[in-house]
């Protein structure tokens, strides 16, 4: 056990969760620094979860001004327009989050994820990006991997009734309970770019269809220079055409990505609040695990679709 003891106040406030993950994990949490980019519903849920859990600090990035859409699944923004006063989404969320747990430092940084340099990024233990373009995801992930210390990287996005989490913990060591013993484990993660570059034919069997559908949409948005989530039913023909091309180049049958699923994702790019709660909860748990170094982390994609109710882990790593 390193570091100082938890204060009496912390022990009292965090009593129930210390009973779940132990005092040592609680101490580590209180020293961890988390950066999140893109404050939509699932991220708002995630932020609430880790602020309640007693993370050391949380830094928010989202320069958008409040719109109807930003409000929809985000309970951190009060609907009273008078309060907005030119504040960004991140600034408004920050005010609410501070209120949840006075022991956590919550702050806002202006800027774009792609412009963050190493000096800045290395001050964080965990970086979560959401509603970012494919290029931004790749670039932040690559920068994380070049930092002098290991930094956990996550992406999270929800559309329609579906959600996706990507995890890159690089070379990660952790402790795991096995019967009454604690054993050391180690996992090696591929980057986001490496994962999505693995030939589909080389994938494990029966990977969630969501993985493929979301890759198609991600590519479509990039090709059309759309902001993430900026699609509508009129884009469906274009998306289906792209799907065909991608399946052909990967030599897999087109039927592996159902048109109906693509149609749902393209038509309803907004978030569904219950799915945000589920995805934000899973992501919160994963980040707490990664910080405390305890328990099997998920590797390296997680999918949830309210239509079938399954929450599935997919391991898509490069083959030797």
């Amino acid at each position: 056990m390193d570091g100082e003891e938890l204060t009496e106040q912390e022990t009292q406030l965090y009593d129930r969760q210390i009973r779940v993950w132990g005092a040592d994990a609680q101490r580590r949490l209180s020293k961890a620094h988390v950066l999140v980019c893109g404050m939509k519903g699932a991220v708002a849920e995630f932020c609430k979860n880790i602020v309640l859990a007693g993370i050391g600090s949380l830094t928010l990035v989202d320069n958008r001004l409040v719109t109807e859409e930003a409000l929809s699944a985000n309970f951190l923004i009060p609907p009273d327009e008078g309060v907005f006063g030119g504040k960004t989404v991140a600034e408004l969320c920050c005010d609410s989050l501070k209120d949840f747990n006075p022991m956590v430092r919550v702050s806002v940084i202006k800027g774009e994820p792609s412009s963050f340099n190493e000096e800045f990024l290395k001050t964080f233990d965990v970086i979560v990006v959401s509603c970012c373009s494919l290029a931004e995801k790749k670039s932040v992930n690559e920068k994380c991997r070049k930092l002098p210390k290991r930094t956990s990287f996550y992406t999270v996005d929800c559309r329609d009734s579906c959600g996706e989490i990507f995890v890159d913990l690089q070379d990660y060591k952790y402790a795991k309970k096995k019967l009454d013993d604690t054993v050391e484990c180690q996992l090696s993660y591929p980057s986001f770019e490496e994962s999505i570059s693995v030939r589909w034919k080389a994938h494990p069997r029966k990977v969630s269809k969501l993985f493929y559908a979301l890759r198609v949409i991600e590519r479509f948005e990039e090709a059309e220079r759309r902001n993430p989530g900026e699609t509508s039913i009129s884009d469906l023909p274009g998306v289906l055409k792209l799907k065909k091309e991608m399946c052909e180049s990967q030599s897999v049958n087109e039927a592996h990505i159902p048109n109906a699923l693509l149609e749902r994702l393209v038509t309803n790019p907004t978030e569904f609040p219950p799915v945000c709660a589920v995805i934000g909860g899973i992501l919160g748990q994963e980040v707490i695990k990664a910080i405390s170094g305890k328990g099997d982390p998920l590797k390296n994609f997680f999918y949830f679709d309210a239509v079938d109710g399954k929450g599935i882990i997919e391991d898509i790593s490069s083959q030797p």
Binding site: V20, E45, A53, P274, V275, A277, V278, G281, G284, I288
Partner: peptide, 17 residues
């Protein structure tokens, strides 16, 4: 009972579904 916010949030989402 041991309790954490994340599990409650997930379960609440599933209840609404």
């Amino acid at each position: 009972v041991h309790a954490v916010a994340t599990t409650n949030a997930i379960i609440a989402g599933l209840i609404v579904i």
